[in-house]
Amino acid sequence: MKKALFIVLLSMFYIPFAQAQLGVKGGLNVAELTGREGESSSYKAFYHVGVFYQANIAGPLAIQPEVQYSVAGGNLKSAFTDYDSKLQYLTVPVLAKLTVGPVFVEAGPQFGILLSADQSGMMQVGLAPDGTPTYGNESRLATGSFKRNDFSVVGGVGLKLASGFSLGGRLVAGLNDVNDAKNLSGINDPRLQNRVFQFYAAFQFGGK
């Protein structure tokens, strides 16, 4: 995964500058963690910021690699638990972008590396002498409870505005299980996958 990220980042600088436009972007993440049985998931609001490099290929078609700091996670709740997870990623989407007039659509893969994670709220904190779970309200670092790599598919639409500005929205759907925790009885927890709706504003230097 790290090798693939390095190749993507390196390739961004081999596209002739005259054919490309650098830009900056940022906005809202509405994220949840899906897939855990016995707990209902709900969305939490986070954010993302990043830079991108739009390389024009032919006519309305372009390739757009990006580097983002992006926060995912969500709330999980059961009869005994109610806690939030906050996962901080370095993400690299590599998107094909098709522009027709002021409207564009974009899609492609995204690679992510987990930087840190934390959890807070009512969760399992131990086992009673008879083996039954005990619960408590706490905040804790949880980086070791999640896998370091995340792979997603991205799809979105947007609108180009004047002077290089644009607005857009995306769905980022995680494909792999990001859960790497064992519960306190030593059994692997069910799968968890990231799902993020992104709403962003972007500015391209030299854009018209």
Rank of each mutant, 00 (worst) to 15 (best):
S42C: 11
A58Y: 11
F52V: 03
E66H: 10
S42H: 07
P65N: 13
Y53M: 05
S41L: 07
A72R: 15
S70K: 12
K77R: 12
L76R: 15
Y69C: 02
Q54E: 07
F46G: 10
K77F: 08
I57E: 04
I57N: 11
I57Y: 03
S41T: 10
N56H: 10
V51I: 12
V49E: 03
I63D: 09
V51F: 05
I63M: 13
Q68Y: 10
Y69A: 05
S70V: 12
A62T: 01
Y47G: 11
K77D: 09
L61H: 04
N75F: 01
F52Y: 11
Y43V: 06
V71W: 03
A72Q: 15
P65H: 02
H48K: 12
Q64T: 14
A45R: 09
V71Y: 05
S42D: 08
V71R: 12
K77C: 13
S41N: 15
P60S: 07
E66W: 07
Q64M: 05
N56L: 00
A45H: 09
H48V: 01
G50N: 12
Y43I: 06
L76P: 12
G74C: 06
S42Q: 08
A62E: 00
A72P: 02
N75S: 14
I57M: 11
A55C: 07
Y47K: 08
Q64D: 01
A55P: 04
V71S: 08
I63Q: 04
A72G: 15
K44N: 15
A55E: 05
G73Q: 07
A58L: 12
F52P: 04
V49R: 03
P60G: 03
Q64K: 13
A62D: 05
A55Y: 03
V71G: 11
A72M: 10
G59W: 05
L61P: 11
E66C: 06
L61V: 15
Q54H: 00
Q64I: 05
A45W: 01
F52E: 14
V51S: 13
G59P: 09
A58F: 09
A45C: 03
G74T: 11
A45M: 11
F46S: 14
L61Y: 00
Y43D: 12
A58W: 02
V51E: 03
A55W: 04
Y47C: 07
A55M: 03
S42V: 00
Q68P: 02
N56C: 02
N56S: 11
L76A: 14
Y43P: 01
S70Y: 08
Q68G: 08
G50F: 03
K44F: 02
A62Y: 05
Q68I: 01
F46E: 12
V67N: 10
H48L: 08
E66T: 06
Y43M: 13
V67G: 09
Q54W: 00
K44R: 15
G50I: 01
A72E: 14
K44C: 06
V67K: 01
V71P: 14
V67R: 03
S41I: 05
G73M: 04
A55S: 10
Q68S: 13
A45L: 14
Y47M: 01
N75T: 13
N75Q: 13
